[in-house]
Design a protein around this nucleic acid. Sequence first.
DNA 1: CGCGCTATTGAACATGTTCAACGAAGGTGG
DNA 2: CCACCTTCGTTGAACATGTTCAATAGCGCG
Lengths: 240, 240
Amino acid sequence: MNSFEMFSASALSAWLDQASDAAPHPPNDHLADLQNDAAEALMAHSFLRHCAPGQAVLVEGEPAEFVGLVISGVLKVCRSLADDRQQIVGLLFAGSFFGRAFETVAHFSVEAASEAEIRCIRRRDFEVLLERHPDLQQHMLSIVLDELQAARDWMVLLGCQETLERVACFFALLLQRGEGGSDRVTFPIGRRDIAGYLGTTVETLSRQVQLLSREGVIEILDGKSFRILDPVRLISLSGT
Amino acid sequence: MNSFEMFSASALSAWLDQASDAAPHPPNDHLADLQNDAAEALMAHSFLRHCAPGQAVLVEGEPAEFVGLVISGVLKVCRSLADDRQQIVGLLFAGSFFGRAFETVAHFSVEAASEAEIRCIRRRDFEVLLERHPDLQQHMLSIVLDELQAARDWMVLLGCQETLERVACFFALLLQRGEGGSDRVTFPIGRRDIAGYLGTTVETLSRQVQLLSREGVIEILDGKSFRILDPVRLISLSGT
DNA sequence: CGCGCTATTGAACATGTTCAACGAAGGTGG
DNA sequence: CCACCTTCGTTGAACATGTTCAATAGCGCG
C-alpha cells in the first residue's frame, strides 16, 4: 500500500518454492531451493559472479546478455543523463530478479552498489525456459506486476514528497526489511547512491539525517548504522 | 529509450491482432479486432462504460472488481496523500490496459481525466481467461514490462529533471502520439492533471508553457492547442 | 447577467541546490 | 609505521528554483 512494500515480491525465488501456499516468501531465499525441471535447467545454465562496488552488470544502450538474481549485496538500476545527473530507479537486494526477457538492448544500467554476488543466466536460455514453462511465466508476471507497483509508489515519493519524508521513507524501508534487529538499521550503500535513489543530493540527505537525529527519531551510531528510537514518529514523518 | 516511449505498448490490443508479425501496433486499435476464442470470451464478458471527467473507475483501497481497456479519452492512475497532494503515476490513452490480475484491493485509483469510454471486464473472468490462455499471459507480461519501463522512465523525469524539461517532455510525448497533424498538439486533459503528472503545480506549469511560447518553441493557439514551431529545440530542452 | 471553474500573472516565501571548506577513514608507498 | 592522498561525509552560506497565496482574466453555462 505504500513505498515500504516495494521489494516485497521481486524474487524469482518464490516460483522455485513449489509449495503452492500463498504465504509471503522471505526475501532471502534463492535459487538453492530449486526443486523441478525448469529450476534445474535454470541452475544448469547459470553461473555465479562476484561484483566489486561500482562494477557494471548491464550498461544502458549496450546489448543485454544476461538476466539474473541477486545472491548478496545491493545492486542499483539507474539511468545517467547528459550532464552527470543520475537517477536510480530501483535497488536490488538479495533475492531480487534483474534483467528483462526479450530485451536485446539494456534500457537501464545495473551496477553493484556494494560488494555483491549475483547468479547470472544468459538471457536467451532464460527466454527458452520461459516459453517452455507457463508457470514460470506466470510467476514472472507476478514479479513484474509487483515491481511496477513499487516503481509507481516511488514515483509518488519523487513527485510529491519533500526530502525529509523521503529520508524517513528510506529508513522505514530498511527497518521493514529488518536486518540487524528490530530497532537497528544499516545503510547497505553509500550516501551518493541513497541520494540518487531519493532524488536529492548528498548534502541535503546528510542534513535531513542529522535533523532526524536531533529530533530524537533516530540515533546515529557510526554514520552507517542507526538505532530507531521512535518508529511511530518515523512512519508518521514518512507521510502515508 | 526515453520517456516519449512510455505509452508505446500498453495495449492488450496487440495480442488480439493474431498477425504474428513483429511490426509495432498503432495505439488506437482495440478489442474490436478480436479473432480467437479467448478474445471472444473476453468480449463476451466485457461491457462498455462511459465516464464523465473526474469519475472514478477504481478507488485506491477499495475492492478492485474490474480490469479493462480504454476505448477513447484519457484516464489517470493516481494516488492521493493525506493532505490533498495527488500524484498521477500514469496516463491511459486509447488502447491502454488498466487494472491488475489477482489484485483484490486497488493499490491506485483510476479516474477519467476527460470524457472517456472504456471496456470493462470482471477481474475474476479475466483471471480465468489468463490461466487458460498462456499466450494471453505472455502478452500481459510484455505489456507490464513495457509499463514498468515507462514508469521508470518517468521516475527519471521526476527525480532529476527540472520543470522546463518536464514540460518539454510532455509536449514531445503528445507530439509523438501525433494526433492532429505533425506539428499540432492538443492537451487532452486539464492543467491540474498535467501538473499532477509532471510533479509540479498548475502555476509553474503555466509559467513554463508561456516561457516556451516566448522563446518561440511553441505557439499557443487557444490554451488547449499548440503548434510546435521548433521540434528540434523542444527535444533538446526535454533533456535526453 | 452572474456564477463557477480554469488558467494566468505577480510577489513573497520556502525549500533544496551549489559551491567551498573541513574533518574522518582507508589505502598506498616510502 | 608514518606521511600522503583520495574518497566520503558533514557543515555553512549564497543562490536558484519552485511553491504558495492572492488577484485577475477568460470561458461556458444556467
